[in-house]
């Protein structure tokens, strides 16, 4: 094995790639997000194209304060600020509020003149304590066409999954109940006993129960469970 020769070849290939590919990424794309669940709402979604090598979170890692605020309370302003700081192209909150079960919404991104080659879609799941839906740093195809991706449910690991009504503020127990969910969420649950896991992972799902005025949780096991995937994301590159 001739090491210097293989390095030379690699350099040649790199040079060739640089000559062929423009440095900036150029794409005009639409991103449709469909909520595939039976009864889980998505809070406002961040939809962004961002540079290679950047991401908002990593599996197995501790969540940032911005991811925590998104996952516990649906607040994407912090995530938006991070995305701004790395020059991302953003089209946040395309649904203008909650994306209800079965509904779809579409965002448009134009990355002309940027180096934004990765797509992230992220938002909180309700009712959960710190569950979120995400497509994390998916490479945006350069060929015009329609591409389908499926997104999974993650747990931010920042809050105990007690599954009872409470707060959307970071670090405070329970989950927020905005008006459209009021009638679906139980009351009087004693709360599951567990603790924040400390790292981002695939969500194990809601447990819930069938007692809407007591029991262990305020989540309805017949309405608020899910299996992955929970969202279908259709990217059309124009």
């Amino acid at each position: 094995m001739n090491l210097s020769r293989s390095i030379t070849q690699s350099k040649a290939l790199l040079l060739a790639a640089t000559l062929i590919a423009p440095i900036t990424h150029s794409a005009d794309l639409t991103v449709s997000i469909e909520n595939l669940t039976r009864g889980i709402y998505f809070t406002p979604l961040a939809v962004a194209a961002h540079p290679d090598g950047t991401s908002l979170f990593g599996l197995g890692e501790a969540a940032s304060a911005e991811i925590q605020a998104m996952a516990e309370g649906g607040d994407i302003s912090g995530a938006g600020a991070i995305l701004d700081s790395i020059g991302a192209t953003q089209a946040n909150n395309p649904a203008g509020g909650l994306l209800t079960p079965g509904a779809s919404t579409t965002a448009t991104l134009n990355t002309d003149g940027t180096s934004n080659t990765l797509l992230t879609v992220i938002g909180m799941m309700l009712p959960t304590n710190d569950g979120f839906v995400a497509l994390n740093s998916q490479m945006i195809p350069t060929e015009p066409g329609t591409y389908t991706y499926y997104a999974k449910a993650y747990d931010a690991g920042t809050e105990a999954n007690d599954e009872v009504r409470g707060s959307g503020a970071p670090g405070e127990a329970g989950f927020p109940v905005p008006p459209p969910l009021e009638a679906e969420i139980g009351t009087g649950g004693t709360g599951l006993t567990n603790s924040a896991e400390g790292f981002i992972h695939i969500h194990r799902g809601n447990l819930g129960d069938t007692d809407s005025t007591g029991g262990m949780t305020d989540i309805d096991s017949t309405q608020h469970r899910w299996l992955n995937p929970i969202a279908k994301i259709t990217v059309t590159v124009n």
């Binding site: 595939l36 669940t37 039976r38 009864g39 079960p101 079965g102 129960d209 069938t210 096991s221 017949t222 309405q223 469970r225 899910w226 299996l227 992955n228 995937p229 929970i230």
Partner: peptide
């Protein structure tokens, strides 16, 4: 819950209190 196809949420079962 609605007249539309969605990804199945799984069954709850009697063992889990339904």
């Amino acid at each position: 819950v609605r007249d539309a196809i969605y990804v199945h949420a799984g069954v709850v079962t009697a063992d889990d209190g339904l």
